[in-house]
Structures are given as structure tokens and as C-alpha cells.
Design a protein around this nucleic acid. Structure first.
Length: 425
DNA sequence: TCTGGGGTCCTAGGACCC
DNA sequence: TCTGGGGTCCTAGGACCC
């Protein structure tokens, strides 16, 4: 099989549009004084850098660098950090995706800040540029885009656009030799779908670049790894294997997990943490009108220390439920296994076996209407008066519990909170 | 003191069935 | 005493993504 890059391919060109440094760009929209400033956005708990502007990258800040180290460094004194504000990012993200979906026949939300879509066959670059222009005008967000004959090639193109600081790279207008050269310059570890383990494994086959991977026999990739790797190789060679079309997201799991702001070492306090997480997970279940058949609960201590403690227990929910009280109850068994006195700093709950609410009629008379009304009332109180007003067990407290995550560097929530709307004089 | 929070897909292997 | 083969379903865990 010889690679079929560029125009010769009969496939519809695929575009990938990505918001540049999404979280940082939103922060700059909310606060224009941040423009041109080296800026990062921190993970929950103000833990580490999860979004960086070009200025911050130029200072050597890497993805995942912990904030408590960055802020000590003299050469980073100009660096500005903001706590993450996912409600704001979510609003901008949905506006971005609405624009993309409205301008293409076939599109797909890939992540909070990325979308794939099939482009106009006659003028891919013109089509994509029009999308980018509208995103900029309507949301203020800058984008980088790539076009290729497959999704994996569109990713390669988009990465090249980012590194060369050009808004758009369209590989379908390149000569096959030029595409080949670009792939030869691209380390295989940069290819979409190739992580650390795969990079090491491929190196043993003397595969080091994207071009090397495109030229490997697909059968070798399938036998040695999986069909996922095989498809990646084929797509690099210009053979579409991944549909672009929008697939209605059928949720398979709901997770709620957080680092704790301070360590927790007693089962009593951990019980409050888990009750609050279970209630949050239950809220998400009801938002999506789903019920869960299995809940996995885990607690653990820092993975950066010796003697990592990790305990997890799965509890069957029969019949499937979204009742917060039942989910809170299901967090109890793990507490019996907790090592008292050990500093735990992370906990979470995972709900699986999701089915539409009411699709599994209960054998013994179904759910309890009083408990359903309670769940609705608690949701409504929390919506109107805030999460701290009411909760299950001791999880609802007027003052923030000491394990609540830290968000000390938050911007005003100018588009999601009436109290914090920008004032223009 | 302080190192994210979600997800998806695939495969292997065990249980179970005929 | 002998102890198949093929199928499905489920779960755990790995690998990867942003």
C-alpha cells in the first residue's frame, strides 16, 4: 500500500479547529489587562498549570508544572496565574461549538476546545477561515486549524499551524513530497493516539517519526498492539478509518473526584467528603436523566509520597438508582477500610452501568416518592442559595469545610454570575 | 503546606452456557 | 476413565486523550 496524501485522495477533507490556549484565552476575554501578559490557568486546588499562553511557554513553563514551585522561581516573577473557572469555560465552549456546528454539515465535538468537521470540497481553506473568523468575532477566541484527508492528518496539520503560529495549515493543497517531509520531521510521540508506552514500543521497531509509522505494515501494528494503532497508521498514510460524523454522546460513566484542599485522616471527615461527592454525582445523574447500577468509591493519599494508601470498593446498586441518599449510603463501606491517621488527599466516586431513568422497572414497587421529592428539594435549595446551604450528612455546612479545594486566584465570573457582570463606565 | 478532573476504547481473561 | 469447542457477557486494567 502506498500512501495517498493530498488532493489525490477521494475523501472529503477533514478540518480540526482548536481554540488556542482555551482557558487562558477566556481569562483574557474576561480581563483584558491579561493580554500580552505571561499567563497560566491552574488546575483545581490551584495545583498545577493546565493552560499556558505563548508568553508563559516562552518563559519555560510546562504543562503540569506545580504552582507552588513556579511561584518560587525568580525568573517567573512576571508570570500571572488564575484559578480555573469551569463554569465560564463551559459557556465559551458551547458558543464555540454552536458556531462550528452551524457552519458545517458534518461535525463533531472532540473536546472542550476542539471540533472536527468535513469541509467544502472545492475550497477547504476558505471554509475553515470563515469558521475561524466567526469564532473570533462572536466569542473573541483565537483558533488554530488544520486540514487533511483524514482526522489524524488534520491533527498533524493543526499541530504544525500551532508551532508555526499560522492560523491555518491545509495539507490537501500540499504536494505529496511536502507532506512526506512534514511527517518525517514529526516525532512519532507527537502523533494523535501515540503516548509514552507506544513510543517506546515503536522505537524497538525503529519507528521514530510519523512517516515511519505511516509506512509500517498495518498488520504488524494490529498484531503487535491493537486496531486502534493500526487505524492511526493507516490514517497517517491518508486512508480514512475514523468517521467524522457526529455521534450522540451516550454517557458510559460519571465520575466525581477531587484533590482535597487539606489532608483528611479520619473516617468521620472522609465520610463528609464522600457524602458531598456522592451528592454531586447524583446531581449529574439526574441532569442527564440516568440511573447507575454500580458505584466505585476510592480514597487515597498523595502519589508523590512514600506509603501510598489506596482503597476502593465497588457497590452494586440494585435496582439502578439516582437517589442521592442511596449513593451516600454506598460510600460507607470504604470508610471501614480507611487507615485512620494516614493523610489522605484524594477521593472520588465513579458511577457505571448507566441506563435511562425508569427504564428498569423495579421489582418491589419502584422508587420512594418521598425520597425523590427530597432530592429535588435539595437540588433546588442548592441552586437558589448555593451548595453550602444544604447537603447530606454533615456535607452541607455554612462555612466551607477545611478540605474544600483552594481557588485563591479566581477571576470574576463575568458571564455566568449576575453579581460579577463587568461594569462599563 | 502545595503536583487536575474528567473521559474513551480496547483487550484479556473468567464465568457461564449449550 | 474420559474431560471439546465455540459463543456471549462482564469486569479489570492498560493506554491514551484533552
Amino acid at each position: 500500500m502506498s500512501p495517498s496524501w493530498g488532493r489525490a485522495s477521494s475523501a472529503q477533507p477533514v478540518a480540526l479547529v482548536d481554540v488556542r490556549s482555551m482557558f487562558c484565552s477566556v481569562e483574557r476575554e474576561l480581563d483584558p489587562t491579561l493580554v500580552d501578559v505571561p499567563l497560566i490557568v491552574l488546575s483545581n486546588n490551584d495545583g498545577c498549570a493546565v493552560s499556558r499562553t505563548d508568553e508563559a511557554k516562552a518563559l519555560g513553563v510546562r504543562m503540569g508544572d506545580p504552582w507552588f514551585k513556579l511561584r518560587e522561581k525568580p525568573h517567573l516573577s512576571a508570570l500571572v496565574a488564575r484559578s480555573s473557572n469551569y463554569a465560564e469555560y463551559g459557556g465559551y465552549s458551547s458558543r464555540f461549538h454552536t458556531i462550528v456546528a452551524g457552519m458545517s454539515a458534518v461535525s463533531c465535538v472532540y473536546s472542550v476546545d476542539e471540533a472536527f468537521f468535513e469541509t467544502d470540497r472545492r475550497d477547504p481553506a476558505g471554509h475553515v477561515a470563515a469558521v475561524q473568523h466567526r469564532v473570533r468575532r462572536w466569542t473573541g477566541l483565537p483558533t488554530a486549524a488544520g486540514v487533511g484527508s483524514t482526522k489524524v492528518l488534520a491533527k498533524v496539520a493543526q499541530r504544525h499551524a500551532k508551532t508555526t503560529r499560522s492560523p491555518l495549515v491545509d495539507l490537501t493543497t500540499w504536494k505529496p513530497g511536502e507532506v512526506r517531509d512534514l511527517l518525517a520531521e514529526t516525532p512519532v510521540s507527537e502523533v494523535w493516539g501515540v503516548g509514552r508506552r507506544l513510543t517506546a514500543g515503536l522505537a524497538r521497531l525503529d519507528v521514530h517519526t510519523a512517516l515511519d509509522l505511516a509506512l509500517v505494515d498495518p498488520g504488524v501494528l494490529r498484531r503487535g498492539w491493537s486496531v486502534v494503532v493500526e487505524r492511526t497508521g493507516r490514517e497517517l498514510a491518508g486512508v480514512p478509518c475514523m468517521p467524522v460524523e457526529y455521534v450522540a454522546p451516550q454517557r458510559k460513566q460519571i465520575m466525581f473526584s477531587r484533590m482535597l484542599g487539606r489532608t483528611v485522616d479520619s473516617p468521620q471527615e472522609m465520610g463528609d467528603v464522600l457524602a458531598s461527592y456522592a451528592a454531586s454525582a447524583a446531581r449529574r445523574l439526574r441532569i442527564h436523566d440516568l440511573e447507575a447500577a454500580l458505584m466505585t468509591v476510592w480514597i487515597s493519599s498523595s502519589r508523590f509520597r512514600d506509603h501510598v494508601e489506596h482503597k476502593s470498593i465497588s457497590v452494586a446498586l440494585d435496582p439502578p438508582t439516582s437517589d442521592p441518599l442511596r449513593l451516600v449510603e454506598a460510600t460507607r463501606p470504604v470508610l471501614a477500610r480507611m487507615r485512620t491517621g494516614h493523610p489522605h488527599n484524594r477521593a472520588g466516586v465513579l458511577l457505571t452501568g448507566l441506563t435511562p431513568a425508569g427504564s428498569q422497572p423495579a421489582l418491589w414497587g419502584g422508587s420512594d416518592p418521598a425520597r425523590e421529592r427530597l432530592a429535588v428539594a435539595v437540588d433546588e435549595l442548592a441552586r437558589r442559595h448555593g451548595r453550602a446551604v444544604v447537603g447530606y450528612g454533615l456535607a452541607g455546612l455554612r462555612t466551607a469545610p477545611r478540605w474544600e479545594m483552594r481557588r485563591e486566584r479566581l477571576s470574576p465570573a463575568a458571564t455566568t454570575s449576575w453579581a460579577e457582570v463587568l461594569t462599563v463606565r
